[in-house]
Design a protein around this nucleic acid. Sequence first.
DNA 1: CCCCATTTGTGCGTATGTATT
DNA 2: GAATACATACGCACAAATGGG
Lengths: 241, 241
Amino acid sequence: MIVQRQSGVALWRQIADRIRTAIANGDYDATGKVPPEISLAAEFGVNRHTVRSALAALAQEGIVRAVQGRGTLIERKERLNFPISRRTRFSEGIGDQAKEKEGLLLAASEESATPDLASRLQLAVGAAVIRLETLRKADRRPVSRATAWFPAERFAGIAEAYRDSGSITAAFTALGLTDYLRVSTEVTAVHADSGDLADLELSPGAIMLVTRALNADADGVPVQYAISRFPADMVQFTIEN
Amino acid sequence: MIVQRQSGVALWRQIADRIRTAIANGDYDATGKVPPEISLAAEFGVNRHTVRSALAALAQEGIVRAVQGRGTLIERKERLNFPISRRTRFSEGIGDQAKEKEGLLLAASEESATPDLASRLQLAVGAAVIRLETLRKADRRPVSRATAWFPAERFAGIAEAYRDSGSITAAFTALGLTDYLRVSTEVTAVHADSGDLADLELSPGAIMLVTRALNADADGVPVQYAISRFPADMVQFTIEN
DNA sequence: CCCCATTTGTGCGTATGTATT
DNA sequence: GAATACATACGCACAAATGGG
């Protein structure tokens, strides 16, 4: 398996991505370090300098740490698992995979529903909706950026409720909605945009998993539509049927 | 939203990826063509030469076709939707999104189960399993590469059954298994490797959605474990709860 | 303690790719 | 298309740190 030249993607970046994936897969768990630069160079068919560029990028991300004479040690290795089910909740989904969970409100505004949004939330086109931009963290590392829309009439004050609790579930409870269910989830993947890079502290070229999710109350009335973005090398989804 | 310099990913490739995604999202459906090079250059903050490199790459992929004096026409635009549910089946999932469906057997072999695989299929470590490498096409375009493992004792002859029918469901039926259910599905995303690029006719830097799926018979006995890889700009998954 | 193999860190010259004007 | 500037990748060589005998 060889890296691709003249593809518009620098060799060092391709190699960095491959090593990052290998670390996440646990391929180097036996030693706790990455193979020596010289053997990685042989494996990928490149110069050692090129491998060094890749490792430097991973060191910048905090994933590895090179020690002269010893090798390149693996510092951080994480891939959070998010279950997707009828009862999907962000905080519960993480479970004990992280100790500290945090939800930050980046921005909130009221706007009127576009045709697409109105049809998903079963509102009239132009109906008032509240939009929240949120950033969620696990153990102080950002793990997702999300934009969520709620019917404004029913959920006035949800921005404050979310800001105070850091949790959608808690905010809903505060507004009198005690239970809600996931109706559908669409999953795609794209390259990180500049907002992702800034908010999630990623390096360019990173891959994002994108979910578009609809939640409804017990009567099936839509209560939330959300587009969430997760760094693909930190996250995987599990659908249990 | 601006492209990233010095990121190890050439600007023309970042722009090609963004335009490919925009086409898949239907952003240019109104006109059936990509905006003029000069306005794309302004949008991305690069020189027109750089945009031309990106469009040349997309033309090479057969996605667009530049016509002097008219613009850059969109030739092909697709994002197949795959439902993931308890009854997930590849061919049925595509439904009428494609007329022609094809399943090719690339390779088949018998091997012994690794600890990980054995635990998933509920076999003894080292038990005989059959591995199939398959390539699935819709309307003559490759849409996924998959590696699937089956308990060898129960499903001897599945390689031939798949080769003849081009369908896992049909192969199971031929071997006496009339029904099976999806137990769980893990979803991740990675960069395409060289095998993806070759088999799926992609360009380097492309993103792959990866699913790891376990299927079981009506009694809950595992019958298949499969790792499938889909080009992210052609595919999305939908989970209906 | 020294020696030595292993491994990372650094320098420099050259060729090619990328992006701008 | 030409000229320019910078990024990427290579090859070779040597320095510096580590760990084990």
